[in-house]
C-alpha cells in the first residue's frame, strides 16, 4: 500500500476536461516530479489531491484511506502540506506568525488558559514561537522573523512559505513550482533543503518546469499532457521517451 495513491482522477469545468484519468503512487522518502506543458492539468491534479477541487471521478487515498471529498484542512491534517504556485502568505502578519499557521494543529490552547494567561498558555506560546523560528532557519530564512511577510523580498517569501509547510510536520510535501523566480544561489539552497527533507522519510511531490532541477532531484517523473499521463518512470527513461519529446516539441520549457 502506497503512502499516497491517486487513481483514475478526472476533473472537468463545464465542458472542459482538465484532468482525465490520471493515476500515480508515491512512497515514503520518494521524490516524484510532475512535468508537462502549460495547461496540462498539473496544478488542477494537485488541487484535487489537496481537496481544493473535488474530482468528478477517481480516488485519492493516504495509507489506503480515501480522502476525496474531505475539506482541505482535514487533508492537511492527514499529513499533506503544500506550497502554492503564486505564493499565498498572510501578508500583514509576521514571518514567524505565518509559520505558526503550520503549527496550528499541533498547538493545544484552552480558552481559559488564553483568557487568564496561565503558565500553560505562556509555555505553549513560547514553544510555538521557538518552533516557528526553527523552521524558518531550516528553510534558510535570513530576515527578521517579526517582519510582515508581505514586505519581504521574493526569495524570503518563498522560504517562509516552505517553512510554513514544513512546520506542519507533513508526510507528503507538495510543492507547486518551488524554483520559479529563484536565483542560482537560492535554487541550490532549495535542492539541499528538498534532499534534507526527503532524508527524514518525507515524500515529495513537486510540479516543476525547470528540467535541470527535475533531473537532478527526482526519483521518478510523471509527464502530463492535456489532462492525461503520457509517461511515468525514472528521469533517464523520461528524457528519451518519444511521447514526451512529442508533447514538448515547440514548447519553450523543453529548452530549459
Amino acid at each position: 500500500m502506497s503512502l499516497l495513491s491517486v487513481r483514475d482522477l478526472r476533473l472537468s469545468f463545464g465542458g472542459l476536461t482538465v484532468v482525465n484519468g490520471v493515476s500515480f503512487d508515491l512512497e515514503p522518502a520518494e521524490i516524484l516530479a510532475v512535468i508537462g506543458p502549460n495547461g496540462a492539468g498539473k496544478t488542477s491534479a494537485f488541487n484535487c489531491v489537496t481537496g481544493v477541487y473535488r474530482p468528478q471521478r477517481g480516488s485519492v487515498t493516504v495509507d489506503g484511506r480515501p480522502i476525496t471529498g474531505l475539506p482541505p484542512s482535514r487533508i492537511a491534517g492527514l499529513g499533506l502540506a503544500r506550497t502554492f504556485q503564486n505564493l499565498r502568505l498572510f501578508p500583514a502578519m509576521s514571518a514567524e506568525d505565518n509559520v505558526r499557521a503550520g503549527l496550528h494543529r499541533a498547538t493545544r490552547q484552552a480558552l481559559w488558559d488564553v483568557l487568564l494567561h496561565t503558565p500553560r498558555y505562556r509555555r505553549s506560546e513560547r514553544e510555538s514561537l521557538e518552533q516557528a523560528r526553527h523552521w524558518l532557519d531550516v528553510a534558510g530564512y535570513e530576515g527578521d522573523p517579526g517582519q510582515p511577510a508581505g514586505t519581504l523580498p521574493y526569495g524570503e517569501q518563498r522560504r517562509v512559505e516552505l517553512a510554513r509547510a514544513l512546520a506542519a510536520g507533513p508526510r507528503v510535501l507538495l510543492l507547486d513550482e518551488p524554483a520559479a523566480g529563484l536565483n542560482h544561489a537560492e535554487r541550490s539552497g532549495l535542492v539541499r533543503l528538498i534532499r534534507e527533507v526527503r532524508s527524514t522519510g518525507v515524500a515529495v511531490l513537486m510540479i516543476e518546469h525547470d528540467m535541470g532541477l527535475v533531473l537532478e532531484l527526482a526519483d521518478r517523473v510523471a509527464v502530463l499532457d492535456r489532462g492525461r499521463k503520457i509517461a511515468d518512470g525514472p528521469p533517464d527513461e523520461i528524457r528519451t521517451d518519444q511521447a514526451v519529446i512529442d508533447a514538448y516539441l515547440g514548447d519553450a520549457d523543453a529548452a530549459a
Binding site: T50, V52, P71, P72, S73, R74, A76, G77, A81, R82, F84, R88, L89, F90, P91, A92, M93, D97, R100, A101, G102, H104, R105, R164, A165, A168
Partner: peptide, 19 residues
C-alpha cells in the same frame, strides 16, 4: 492567529490545516 489567517487568505489558511 487563526482568525487573522482567515482574514488574510482563507484558502491558504484552509490548505495549512486550519478548519
Amino acid at each position: 492567529r487563526a482568525w487573522q489567517y482567515v482574514r488574510e487568505d482563507e484558502d491558504a489558511a484552509e490548505a495549512t490545516g486550519i478548519s
